[in-house]
Nucleic acid binder design. Structure first.
Length: 122
RNA sequence: UGAGUUGGCCAAGACAAUCGCUGCUUGCGUAAGCAAGGGGAGGAAAGUCCGGGCUCCACAGGGCAGGGUGCCAGGUAAUGCCUGGGAGGCGUGAGCCUACGACCAGUGCAACAGAGAGCAAACCGCCGAUGGCCCGCGCAAGUGGGAUCAGGUAAGGGUGAAAGGGUGCGGUAAGAGCGCACCGCGCGACUGGCAACAGUUCGUGGCACGGUAAACUCCACCCGGAGCAAGAUCAAAUAGGCCCUCUAUGGCGCGGCCCGCGUUGAGGGCGGGUAGAUUGCUUGAGGCUUAGGGUGACCUAAGUCCUAGAGGAAUGAUUGUCACUCUGGCAACAGAGAACAGAACCCGGCUUAAUGGCCAACUCACUUU
RNA sequence: AGGGGCGUAGCCAAGCGGUAAGGCAGCGGGUUUUGAUCCCGCCACGCCCAGGUUCGAAUCCUGGCGCCCCUG
């Protein structure tokens, strides 16, 4: 049985960790999200979230999106290599239902895994 | 039955399965952690508009600014809140609404229109009694008529948001609170009320004291400054330098200003260099029940309960079953919907956002007995 | 958490109790063979929204909405 926990070691905690990812990442995108990724030296991925107040006005909606993303990441963490991820929201997605968010995220995780392999071999 | 008013309550509902997050208690463990148990968003958590608690700074005291509130009484830790009452307004009614002190302390403002707009004013109009003018009668004193010069007049027209009480009678040359009656208004007394205020009460004044203070202002009352990034504790690293300038009727504390009080360097540039953790942190002007007091807000007493504490920031996701509402359908069923919105030191209010439901009391209309 | 400012025509804006200046753009006309320039005219039933004060509000007051900036 593999662990599906989402403890603190799987998150980006400090501003410096975020800045590190922003510097030379590769990026993966879907109509709703942009994910910046950068290989770390760890055996597991780490996730950070950036949802601008300008894009999503209401705190309730921002919380909903965060929970969705975190849960999807938690369930798919073992498909992902050792990368630091920063997820950003592109537009106003307050009206998008959870099911669609989850679909898009699933595609993004596999994209990241493929790009990571391509990067390592080049 | 329908329409409505007021007050209160609830709120993506219940159950199950799987996978998570978080802090609390217990057990094991040196520790990291693991296991079990029982918790985990709101009525507005929002806006940050008021009022407090708490914490630090300042504080002998006083003055001047500045800000706020504004019918009266009560409640409260306090308020700009709430309750009760008064006055005014709205509604058939239950009820609802109101920044509601003072322009006889002073200063200001009122475009355009209009004759006149602030110790009122004659454009049209009315009159022209009185003094002149002209004509007739008369010897004369005088008398009758005419126009309107002086003049009188705020009834009527017209202007304006606003033109200095209303109606009627008398009065007059025409008029006019000029006089009178009633109504209204001001002032004083008396009575009721803690008071605001009220009165088929009495007396008195012929009678504006116009509007505007969300204009300056005056009056009464209130207000020291910051905010949990407040503040406290612990530990580590670096530095403890150099240069220039200014000054003691100076600088700083002092964050509105002044008197005053305390303190003694201050400012600029260069160089060097940084690491945070813990606490504050949830038990409180607390909730619930009962009894008592009060019209009520609320207060008192007894019993009982513990009910979120995150930190790139938890309070969730997926699936199934059953409920709720709407649409389609005879039905089985199918589809859609389920508001506003997410704690960050804590309370009391206000305001704003928004959907459905439940309960109680009351009002109006109709029907039945 | 605390503080400051703005919102007026499609754009830039002045006005801060008494008829909403001005410029650019646009539209119509004139001048010109045509165009540019130039000249004339038109263009806000209303000043972010909702109440209130006032005879009268873009302006004053109250509440809300949106945007921008500053301090830590």
């Amino acid at each position: 049985m593999v662990s599906l926990n989402f403890g603190r070691e799987l998150r980006l905690l400090a501003p410096s960790q975020f800045d590190n990812v922003f510097q030379h990442p590769f990026r993966v995108a879907s109509p709703l999200f942009t994910i910046l990724a950068k290989p770390n030296q760890l055996a597991h991925p780490r996730l950070g979230l950036t949802i601008a107040k300008k894009r999503v006005k209401l705190a309730v909606q921002r919380n909903r999106i965060k929970r969705c993303v975190r849960d999807s990441f938690r369930l798919h963490q073992h498909q992902l290599p050792g990368v630091d991820l920063v997820l950003m929201v592109k537009g106003d997605i307050s009206n998008t239902p959870n099911s669609e968010l989850l679909q898009q995220l699933e595609r993004l995780w596999s994209k990241i895994a493929r790009q990571y392999i391509a990067l390592q071999s080049s």
